[in-house]
C-alpha cells in the first residue's frame, strides 16, 4: 500500500516540476489536470482499512470531477476565448524555474524533516510533497505574467494543501474536505470566467498591464 502512495506522490511532484519548466499553456493545463486525477486515489489509499468506505470514495470521485475535469475545462475555455500567445514570457525563465524548483524541493524536504508527524499518519513522503506543491504553486504565481498561469499556480498550491489535508488529517470530516473543494471551485470558476472575458476584451491577460485599465490614465491621454 505504501509504495502505491509513494508512487502517486512522486508522480504529483513530477507534474509540478513539468509545470515549472513548461512553456506552453496547453501543456501546463494538461499537467494540472493530470495532477488532479493523480490526487483522487489519495483519500482511498491514505484512509487506511478503517476509513476505507463510501466517504473516501465520494471524495475521490469529487476530486476527479472537479480537479481532473472541471478546472482544466474552465482553463482550456479561457485560453480558447482570447487570442492569447501560446508561449508565455515569464519573469523567471524556464530553466531557472526548474532550478528554483530544485531549491524549493530542498526547502520542502528540510522543512518536513523538522516537522514531526503524528505517529501512524500517512507516509514520510506526504509532508515534503505537500510542502513542495505549496511552494511551487506560490512560485508559479509570483513568476508568471499571464493570469491563466497564475490560476494554474493557485491550483497547484491548493493541491499541495489537499495532499496535506488528506495525508495528515485523514480524520477530519468529509464535510470539511468537500467544503474546501467547493470554495476552490467557486474561486476558480470566477477566475476562469474573468480571464475568459479579459481575453476577449483585451486580447491578453498579462497581469502587468492590467494597471492600464483605469479611467484616470485614459483621461490623461
Amino acid at each position: 500500500m505504501n509504495s502505491w502512495i509513494d508512487a502517486v506522490l512522486v508522480l504529483i511532484t513530477l507534474t509540478s516540476l513539468v509545470l515549472l519548466g513548461a512553456s506552453r499553456l496547453g501543456t501546463s493545463i494538461r499537467m494540472v489536470a493530470l495532477q488532479g486525477v493523480l490526487l483522487s486515489p489519495l483519500p482511498l489509499l491514505l484512509a487506511g482499512p478503517s476509513g476505507f468506505g463510501p466517504r473516501a470514495a465520494m471524495l475521490a470521485v469529487a476530486t476527479v470531477l472537479i480537479k481532473g475535469l472541471g478546472f482544466p475545462w474552465l482553463m482550456a475555455r479561457a485560453v480558447r476565448g482570447g487570442s492569447q500567445r501560446r508561449e508565455m514570457d515569464p519573469r523567471v525563465g524556464y530553466n531557472a524555474s526548474l532550478l528554483a524548483g530544485v531549491l524549493l524541493m530542498v526547502v520542502a524536504f528540510l522543512l518536513s524533516s523538522r516537522l514531526p508527524l503524528p505517529p501512524g499518519e500517512g507516509t514520510p513522503l506526504v509532508l515534503p510533497v505537500a510542502l513542495f506543491n505549496i511552494l511551487a504553486g506560490m512560485f508559479v504565481i509570483a513568476s508568471r505574467r499571464q493570469a491563466i498561469t497564475q490560476v494554474l499556480g493557485y491550483l497547484v498550491m491548493e493541491n499541495g494543501i489537499y495532499v496535506f489535508g488528506v495525508g495528515i488529517a485523514s480524520h477530519q470530516p468529509l464535510l470539511v474536505e468537500l467544503g474546501i473543494l467547493l470554495d476552490v471551485f467557486a474561486a476558480v470558476f470566477v477566475m476562469g470566467i474573468v480571464i475568459f472575458h479579459m481575453g476577449r476584451e483585451l486580447d491578453h491577460t498579462d497581469t502587468d498591464r492590467l494597471t492600464l485599465l483605469n479611467d484616470w490614465q485614459k483621461e490623461k491621454e
Binding site: 516540476l17 530553466n95 526548474l98 530544485v102 524541493m105
Partner: peptide, 10 residues
C-alpha cells in the same frame, strides 16, 4: 538534461 538532473535529485 536539467530535467534528468532534477529526477536524480528527487
Amino acid at each position: 538534461l536539467l530535467g534528468a538532473g532534477v529526477l536524480s535529485l528527487l
